[in-house]
Amino acid sequence: MLVRRSLAAVLSVGALFLAGCAGDDLANDDTADSPESSAAADQGSVTIAGQNFPEATLVASMYEQLLENGGYTVEVKLVDSRDAYMPTFPDSVDVVPEYVGGIVNFLNTQKGGADAKPFEAGDGEQLASDGADLLEGAGITLLDVSPATDANAFFVTKEYSEAEGVTKLSDLEGKSVTLAAAPDCEGRLDCEGGLSDEYGIDVTEVLPLGYASDQTYQSVLKGESELGETSTTDGTLESQGLVILEDDKHIQPAQNLVPAVGADFLAEHPDVEDILNPLMTALTTENLTELNGRIAVDREKPEDVAADFLSQEGLL
């Protein structure tokens, strides 16, 4: 990480030196280094890809607004699952709002197959370090790891929890359940695979209704499924009469938010690091949960919530 930042600093200094040689008028212009002039500069285009669930949409909008403010022309492509965008990253995708455990273990499974031992570090920085070789081999660089973390979680209705005496996932051992979850859940060690193999839960069927989607909530509320997949920062559960079950066997690796950037793209655009890293510092698990609630419960638009947060934090 230190080597990458040093290179970025050298490139930035070089860029300033060349700008200074371009003409005395620019060098003597007091507004040349102002935020307004920086934002107006044409930095080229950037493609953001990510998953299409509320939190990912929110964070992608934050990236989009910050990069546009930094002078980039931004295209955003949101899809159903990581499987859909990773084959194009980093070849035709430049930046992805990611989760440390998610991307590291995706690359690990891609290289070692479905039976590859997952990376399980509970600390985001450590997990990023553990996956450094995989990331480098894929041509991907992780920027600063945020303290905000959002792991997969599984919920039931309060009624089911109380009636069955279920408060943690191990309480479901030996029970047969239908699971409403993301389309790529089946077999994943942090989803159906872990529930079956580590917890001994008899998952009779996985309904691909989406990650933290209305369809998944409704499936559980209506009794079609006993168990649903969401996130630990889901701000809607209490208002719906739903409760998260404790992951007491810790099948979820650290899932700190982190910008994943194509290594070649970052070498050509080192300023992206300075644009996105302050956001990672500003985000916390607590404020992320609150922002998610504004979208899911209060029905505010993700782009409006993103703009409000960025403005309050002094990032725009």
Score class of each variant (00 low, 15 high):
S37A: 11
P54N: 04
V305I: 04
T149H: 13
V95N: 00
D304H: 10
C21D: 03
S37Y: 05
Q43Y: 03
V297Q: 11
V156H: 00
A307D: 15
R188H: 11
E186T: 12
H250T: 13
E36V: 14
A267M: 10
V177F: 04
V79Y: 01
N69F: 01
P54Q: 03
A151D: 11
A163T: 14
T57I: 06
E159V: 06
L127Y: 03
V59E: 00
F119C: 08
V243C: 04
V243S: 02
Q126S: 13
S311F: 09
D144H: 12
Q218K: 13
V93M: 02
D190W: 13
R82A: 14
D115L: 09
D274P: 12
P118K: 10
V3G: 05
A282M: 10
L11D: 11
T204Q: 14
S92C: 02
Y211L: 14
A138Q: 07
V74L: 08
A41V: 04
D214A: 15
A40P: 03
S176N: 13
G228D: 07
L189G: 11
S45W: 04
N256W: 05
N52D: 15
D133L: 13
V59F: 01
V93Y: 00
A56C: 03
P147A: 08
D202L: 06
S161C: 06
P97F: 00
D271P: 11
G102Q: 05
T232H: 10
P147N: 08
A148Y: 01
Q43G: 05
G23V: 09
V74F: 06
A181T: 08
N52Q: 12
D171I: 03
A19Y: 05
Q51Y: 04
V243D: 03
N256R: 03
L195P: 12
Q240T: 03
N52Y: 07
P253A: 15
E120M: 15
S81R: 09
E226N: 07
L237E: 03
A148N: 01
D123L: 05
L288F: 01
T31L: 12
I48V: 07
V220S: 05
A8S: 14
D133K: 13
E246M: 03
E246R: 02
F155C: 07
P270A: 09
G112K: 04
T141Y: 08
A116N: 07
L16D: 12
S45M: 07
L142V: 10
G223Y: 07
D248H: 11
G71H: 01
L237Y: 06
V145C: 06
P87V: 07
P87Y: 05
L66V: 09
A32V: 14
G23Q: 06
T230C: 15
D115S: 14
L266A: 06
A212K: 02
K158S: 07
D197Q: 14
I295T: 05
E268D: 15
L195R: 07
E229I: 05
L127M: 12
R188E: 14
Q240K: 15
S38W: 04
T73R: 09
P90I: 02
G44E: 08
V305G: 02
M62I: 02
A296S: 13
R82L: 15
T109E: 12
E159Y: 03
Y85N: 00
L245H: 00
D33R: 05
S311E: 15
E68A: 13
Q110V: 04
G23Y: 06
F155G: 02
G14A: 12
D202I: 08
S37F: 05
